[in-house]
Design a protein around this nucleic acid. Structure first.
Lengths: 201, 201
DNA sequence: GCTGCAATCTGGACGCCGTCAAGATAGGGT
DNA sequence: ACCCTATCTTGACGGCGTCCAGATTGCAGC
């Protein structure tokens, strides 16, 4: 596809998303312009508008893919009430790996570009919230934080994870070297939040 | 100042920062353009370049002001080893209020605009790190988390706070209503991290 | 197989943006 | 009084997202 000489591209929609993911990974949102994208796809600068309402819509689609991958990660997670540590550890590691594998994608998923400045698609909102919902449910189903409000535990622990990722990815107060130690610390923190009952045996 | 008719402004440097802070608060970084800023100050579009090297430099100065205010907040914080909760609670509330009072300023201070996309000024870096340093020292001086590595505790707890702010300000998984409850949860989390020794009395 | 319609793609234009370059203006020290 | 330099101006360039009018194509129905 994208034969030089063909007037109709064939599958521009998919090609745009594919190329956008590459560009995002390599250059970040700032380097992702519709014009450049179109050029890469071998198409004129306004062609993308026939497949996405505007740039915001394309970015939402991109972020949605990310949330779907994250959801798969969540699906695999399993915590056991009697010994939540191994499961929790696996999940935390997985989450941190997810974020640091493709920092720009993570940034797009959770950054202000979409949620504050832009207008998140209804579809994006659904997937993103579904992701979090799954996390809450999982905690609850596995009997984690039984004595407390599962929603609050979920919010606080996700925030911890998220905060770590942001500080790490933006390189403010953390760098790669701290990764291991900080992830351990986070696990400890979350464990403490998750088993308040065990403190009075 | 900015008399219509005066060729020299008088104190453009300060006027730019002042106007920029307003524009930032009202419209966010995205609404803050040098051209608009210049217009507001009653000056031509390239005049700002005689006071700031480029947009990045101006934003760094703006963020620096924020960190200085945050540092003052930190200065007032006090945790007591024998009963850290009240101090911690005050600090957490203060931090959350700081972030939600001027979300755009907070975003600028900790966002990728400066730290990832832009080039943080040496001066900005110094102030920002000084801020964090003060937090670590304070924890240590007040004997918080005695048994553990103060740096790690600081990183993890700051990350928790930061994550909460981001999720809240960007409106992803939290909204204003959750504020109170989540801040309590965060306090509990940090308390747990801070007194591991007390768990084996 | 032909026709007409809708989907797709094109180039031009507009108004933003950050920034560079060259020239105008004015205030302060000699 | 004079000049130096800080300050400010206009003009220009390239890049951006997006609207518009027109060109091209694939396909459904005849």
């Amino acid at each position: 596809m994208a034969q030089p000489g063909r007037y109709h591209h064939g599958d521009l929609h998919a090609a745009l998303l594919r190329e956008a993911a590459i560009l995002l990974r390599e250059q970040g949102v700032e380097g992702l312009s519709l014009r450049r994208l179109a050029e890469r796809a071998g198409v004129s600068r306004t062609a993308p508008y026939h497949h996405f309402e505007d740039k915001n819509a394309l970015l939402c689609a991109l972020a949605e893919d990310g949330f779907r991958r994250l959801d798969r990660l969540l699906e695999e997670a399993a915590f056991q009430a009697d010994d939540p540590e191994p499961g929790l550890r696996r999940f935390v590691r997985g989450y941190l790996r997810f974020a640091s594998d493709d920092p720009e994608q993570y940034e797009l998923m959770f950054g202000r570009t979409l949620w504050k400045t832009g207008r998140p698609t209804e579809s994006l909102t659904r997937v993103a919230h579904g992701c979090f919902r799954r996390y809450v449910d999982k905690l609850q189903a596995d009997g984690i934080g039984a004595g407390t409000d599962a929603l609050r535990v979920a919010q606080a622990s996700w925030a911890t994870l998220h905060g770590l990722c942001r500080l790490l990815l933006d390189g403010i107060y953390l760098d790669r070297q701290d990764m291991e130690a900080v992830s351990d610390q986070a696990i400890a923190l979350m464990l403490a939040a998750v088993r308040p009952a065990e403190r009075t045996p």
